[in-house]
């Protein structure tokens, strides 16, 4: 008693076969199993049901389960591929795969577009961009006048909205992001290259080979 075998852990809700996940992603089987260590930690932090709830995601990101953040909300919603309010293990791995250093830039550009298309209209609209600028100002406790915010949004639209129709479509975003790769820096997590180093215990115990 008191010792939970890896077989029992694997029956957690939302668990998915690492072999399948490794086939679909850049991760090896060992790396998927190391990611399971991280997943397990986050998904048992508040509600111990083996699924990542929004409060648990916020706790892992901010060390505070009540910290509201527009962008964390967006990331959570996009990771929640089944749209059932929780992130399952397979969703966690497939979504983090986009942030892998070896994942093609095109996938990162597409993910960032969905992230910024707050209302899912297929465009990044002026109002959405303004809402996001206001959110980051609020988060960083920076105070700018409404005029200054309008100027930032206008300037950005001047650069990105090539056909000047007042919204940024996917092709425009692709061109803009390709010209400004620094905008996608947050779409790559160097940690994912060394995930088995960060969580080595499972690799030693799992016996999985690639």
């Amino acid at each position: 008693m008191g010792c939970v075998s890896s077989k029992q852990l694997k029956r957690d809700k939302g668990y998915e076969d690492p072999n399948i996940l490794a086939k679909e992603t850049t991760f090896s089987v060992n790396e998927v199993e190391a990611l399971f260590q991280l997943y397990k930690k986050i998904s048992h932090s508040i509600i111990k049901d083996g699924l990542i709830h929004k409060e648990e995601f916020q706790l892992a990101l901010f060390r505070n389960s009540n910290q509201k953040n527009l962008f964390a909300d967006r990331i959570f919603d996009l990771f929640d591929l089944k749209r059932n309010g929780v992130i399952e293990f397979g969703e966690f791995v497939r979504s983090l795969n986009i942030f892998h250093p070896d994942t093609p830039m095109a996938e990162k550009i597409a993910f960032a577009f969905r992230l910024y298309d707050l209302r899912g209209t297929g465009f990044i609209e002026r109002e959405e961009l303004k809402e996001m600028v206001l959110a980051i100002l609020n988060e960083s406790e920076l105070i700018l006048s409404d005029d200054a915010v309008e100027q930032i949004v206008d300037q950005t639209f001047k650069q990105a909205d090539m056909n000047e129709d007042g919204k940024i479509d996917f092709e425009e975003w692709k061109a803009f992001a390709s010209k400004n790769p620094a905008l996608l820096k947050n779409m790559t997590l160097p940690y994912l290259k060394d995930i088995t180093m960060a969580f080595p215990s499972f690799v030693l115990n799992s016996g999985a080979s690639d």
């Binding site: 953040n69 962008f71 909300d73 996001m132 980051i136 930032i152 950005t156 650069q159 400004n180 905008l183």
Partner: peptide
């Protein structure tokens, strides 16, 4: 200077995007 700021560069700095925090022990 607001006119030289890029909105996407600003918002990409949000802590909400800092998924590296998930890996901090």
């Amino acid at each position: 200077r607001p006119e030289s700021m890029n909105a996407f560069a600003l918002i990409s700095r949000s802590q909400g995007f800092n998924l590296g925090n998930l890996f901090e022990k």
